[in-house]
Amino acid sequence: MNWTYRGKCWKFGDNLGIDGDVMPLRFALERELDPAVLRDWLMTGIDPDFPRKVSPGDIIVAGRRFGQGNPHIQGFLGIVGHGLGLVAETIPRGSFRNAINAGLPFLSGCAGVTGDVETGDDLEVDFRTGAFHNLTRNLSRRFPPLDARLQAIVEAGGWRPNLERRLARLRAGGSVVA
């Protein structure tokens, strides 16, 4: 898996709701889990054209409490569906867990990051190390990366593939801890 993303910045503010802002609630109610379906509705609550503007490798940069609300995984699967990365100032606990379980490379706990970027900036982010570069503004930051055990789940592809990997190890008589 490639942990370094190079692409365009898409900047958002604080308190984006996982239901409504990031993904229409109906997909949670319908229990839709296919990233290829969900990608076409990503962020349409804020910008109806968003799914047509982004390219794989682009990076969403958001403020505090990204994905707040009743924790539904669909918004994060939509981000995965486009091959985007996510850098947020904070992510509430339920959504943090869903982001891992969706297999999304992301950084959380990136205080002040929205002050360092504007939409359209050229960014390069190494999600394994937390190295963050705004190439447009010639500015570099270092944010806390995900714990290695969580990176292992993201690397496996999220909750289901990671569970299957653990089961395979278990059947082989090995350790089941990631």
């Binding site: 606990r93 943090f96 891992i100 055990r149 969580l150 789940i153 909750w159 569970l163 653990r166 089961l167 278990l170 089941v176 801890v177 990631a178």
Partner: peptide, 15 residues
């Protein structure tokens, strides 16, 4: 629903 992983593998990640 992640209790399924505990039933199958004995644990699940926790922060």
């Amino acid at each position: 629903i992640e209790i399924t992983e505990v039933l199958a593998c004995g644990s699940v990640w926790l922060r």
